[in-house]
Design a protein around this nucleic acid. Structure first.
Lengths: 184, 184
DNA sequence: GTCTATAAAGGGATAGAC
DNA sequence: GTCTATCCCTTTATAGAC
């Protein structure tokens, strides 16, 4: 790979990383291409050398953001399943120290085009599988889905409401619900 | 109340009803004031005789949409708690035949101003109270919150994903989770 | 109170220089 | 490949006629 190609690759990665952060925190409509490019240290015009449209970038950003959230968990949580679940349903997560796109973009998806929604759906399926591994529900998919809803849906609601006390109570309720029956 | 005042009142109600429907289905950014007014049978310019801003209308629309969803449930579900929960976690709800703003607008709230978020939060609290009454968890608020998350969060995710089969499985998992321990 | 017309700003996408 | 400049459309909000 020549240095020019390498340079282009680096720029693309900078754009994706910037998009993953901004889109996950603010959603599709409240982030402009200019925002993404400035945050990546580039200018607006350069964008279309890397992506066909804002929507295409969004789909990639969802995948990248999910990977980043996973990496954050691996670096900051103990390997115990209950610790990973605690981190997901933590105050840090609610306040956006890291952000799972499943929880932060859920109701944003309804308005997005098919490609984006399919990407979101695949990320969700992988999350369920991961929960099955973590909680030992390998033979009970419905139980794993229920726990996933408590995590993803719980965080989605926790970041929506305006009342810190209630949000903490809600997160506790979800932690209790997911951890029932997990002995680590 | 003179006929003029009455007329204005009717217009305002038409606008709120239109907004409740459109905002709940498409979110804040994907609905324009023109959309709302046309759907209400009026023109754009008349809007500011009734509301100060799009955001103000949104806050009222959240309340109105919640009331409409509740009325829909009262008319279409049996009075048995399990039937009301089934209706909430039904295919009809997922496909927007009626729409609970808590589930459909959850991740939209993060970007909204304080007034709107407070409105959403109050509607959420009332929902939890209602679930406490329905499920008999009057002395266990955390249990009621957990069930509310399964309902609201479950529907939020169900309408986000792109896979009908998975969505049905998810709704079933949530119904099972909420109905555990409800004897009607 | 509701209408038409318009102001003013923002943002997606493209053109062309370097 | 990245930049500046710009086109073109949408949208919130206002002005003024009826």
């Amino acid at each position: 790979m020549g240095w020019k190609t390498e340079h282009k690759d680096q720029s693309r990665q900078k754009i994706t990383a910037s998009a993953a952060e901004l889109f996950t925190k603010r959603g599709f409509d409240n982030v402009t291409i200019n925002d993404v490019m400035e945050h990546a240290g580039l200018t607006r015009g350069a964008f279309y050398n890397h992506f066909q449209s804002k929507s295409d970038l969004y789909a990639e950003a969802v995948v990248d953001a999910a990977q980043r959230a996973k990496n954050y968990a691996l670096e900051n949580a103990n390997l115990k399943p209950s610790d990973i679940i605690e981190l997901y349903l933590s105050e840090q997560h609610r306040q956006g120290e890291f952000a799972c796109p499943l929880a932060f973009l859920a109701t944003d998806m309804r308005q997005r085009e098919s490609k984006v929604r399919s990407t979101y759906t695949e990320v969700f399926k992988k999350f369920v599988t991961r929960i099955q591994e973590l909680t030992g529900d390998t033979e009970d998919e419905l139980e794993a889905i229920k726990k996933t809803v408590l995590m993803v849906g719980g965080m989605a609601i926790a970041q929506a409401i305006n009342d810190d006390e209630l949000a903490e109570k809600l997160l506790k309720a979800c932690r209790d619900g997911v951890n029932t029956g997990i002995s680590d």
